[in-house]
Amino acid sequence: MQDKKNDQTAVQSTTVNGSVAADSNQEKLFTISVLTENKSGLLNGVTIVFTRRKVNIESINVSITEVEGVSRYTILVKCSKEVAEKIVKQIRKLVEVLGAFVYDQEEIHYQELALYKVQTKHIMNGNKVESLVRNNGARILVIESDYIVIEKTGHMHETHEMFEKLKPFGVLEFVRSGRIAISKSKRETTTFLKELEEASKIKINK
């Protein structure tokens, strides 16, 4: 189990090996990525691993993957490296979990999406909001008679910065999606699944 479900983490651990000891108690953001069979109720199983240890989930996203029937959970947590690794080991124990990995920011490509609702009059009267949209790589998703919806993708601090800039105009609603991330690992999910299939057939040599 350790060999397989662990593999990507093992690679990951070595890249930050030198700093593990020093960092292990320091709280920071980690992205936990979980590949699972698509089973109803599993989300509960995954989240109670966090609840039991009183670790707050900053954001969570569940989506399909390139492989049919396989889901990916992307969970953002703020905790120490040691806690993140222990949580991941517990998640791997869930029967329908195919693999669980913990990543530092540098080991992934990640993105978030934010939506902002602003009164339509603000783009009618002068072009301040419009230039904000333009200069911040955002776009206007919808224009209704009384409100507009602005969409912006980016990292948390970027979408938050946009929120701060829109604030003076009165933001009616603001929502940000969970983080989604893709690892820098070269392994393909299908290869990983094949290895899992083999590992699940190991019997004790008694």
Binding site: M1, Q2, D3, K4, K5, T36, E37, V95, E96, V97, L98, L193, L196, E197, A199, S200, K201, I202, K203, I204, N205
Partner: peptide, 14 residues
């Protein structure tokens, strides 16, 4: 049941 792909009860000896 003989195996479940997401479940690895027996670790491979290293």
């Amino acid at each position: 049941c003989e195996n479940i792909r997401s479940y690895h009860p027996v670790p491979k000896i290293n």
